[in-house]
Nucleic acid binder design. Sequence first.
DNA 1: TTGACAAGCGGAGACATCTCCGTTTAATAT
DNA 2: ATATTAAACGGAGATGTCTCCGCTTGTCAA
Lengths: 203, 203
Amino acid sequence: MNDTEETPGRSERRDAAENRQRILEAALRLFEQQGVEQVSMNQIAIEAQIGPGTLYRRYRNKGELCLDLMKENIVLLFENIETHLKQHRADPPSQRLKGLLALFIRFREKKSQLLTGVEESASTNRFKSRTQSPLYLELHELLVELFDEMKVDGQSSPNQPDSVFKADMLLMALSSESYLFQRDERGYSPEKFLEQIWLTFHS
Amino acid sequence: MNDTEETPGRSERRDAAENRQRILEAALRLFEQQGVEQVSMNQIAIEAQIGPGTLYRRYRNKGELCLDLMKENIVLLFENIETHLKQHRADPPSQRLKGLLALFIRFREKKSQLLTGVEESASTNRFKSRTQSPLYLELHELLVELFDEMKVDGQSSPNQPDSVFKADMLLMALSSESYLFQRDERGYSPEKFLEQIWLTFHS
DNA sequence: TTGACAAGCGGAGACATCTCCGTTTAATAT
DNA sequence: ATATTAAACGGAGATGTCTCCGCTTGTCAA
């Protein structure tokens, strides 16, 4: 939970660890007060009493910071998903898909603002790489497995799109931009959204 | 073609019209030299020899400017689509959908950079309102009609998602973020992408 | 022609992102 | 203890977005 970096290389310097704490606390405080969207990296640096350079050394953008603030919840999400998939091993894959989607949507509701924060900076910055975040990579893998299983069972239509492609499309459909638009503009409740998205991708 | 504004109210002031021309020419020049992505509103203002305020008065962001530069092509796109739909009136709706998608993908390839420009500023700014652009609204309408028709024909699965929802998802799938990722990272050619997207949404 | 005035202009400036680099400092070796 | 050094710091500044507002200028009516 402590490892922002993969390489265990050497332990974090004391002052650095201190600053990391300061940043996370400051960000959390400001996010709660003003909403993720409204808070700038600058404000966070000031609130944490560090220079902008120090903040950017650790988090290249607000998205990475948001991701760090969600680490625990993401781990929990995947634990829940694993559990669910195991418990329903016997169900048809499209049913397990629905369960997975339900869990993800619940997660997305709980961490709505932070997730949006992640996605916005991710697409502003890297090579369109919201899709590279470990969160999405891991979900993608699970989805591909499920879709492949559906194909084999093959009660459904004869020619289906590639599972990788289909998983990509489903993840687009689950993005903040898509989900919040459906919820806030089209007026779908989370449950209705789940129903619709499942109908769109289950076969 | 001249109407950036809906209200015909009163004709454009002479100096304003002049500036509009200057802006469009400057933008086109810079976009060609450096690519849409790399050019800032600032540079455009300087190249057009006007103040930043003047530029922003006319175009609230780079996206609007890109849209204006594409106006003609968008009109042509819709003419092509209308023509195609009429000529294939007798074909099954899913076939007409494929034609429409092919036309859109061709358009998207031709105007790739500008379209990305539109979508990026649109989502950075307004209420997630890439979806509000007339381009997408009009496409959405056409898609809904086709999906509704497919439902009625009803050879396909019994319960389908709402056509509005499905059209929204399809448009997400056709966005720059999605399309360019598939093309550049997953390595799908435009033709393969068309095939896959059609398989995903035709039923 | 002239006067009035809405529309347009433009640049200063508020803020934001992000980088560069000289300085400081914690950790480790001696 | 002290020296060494890689890492971390911090803030100035380059560049960008976007707004505000006093000034200028077409346009139209008289």
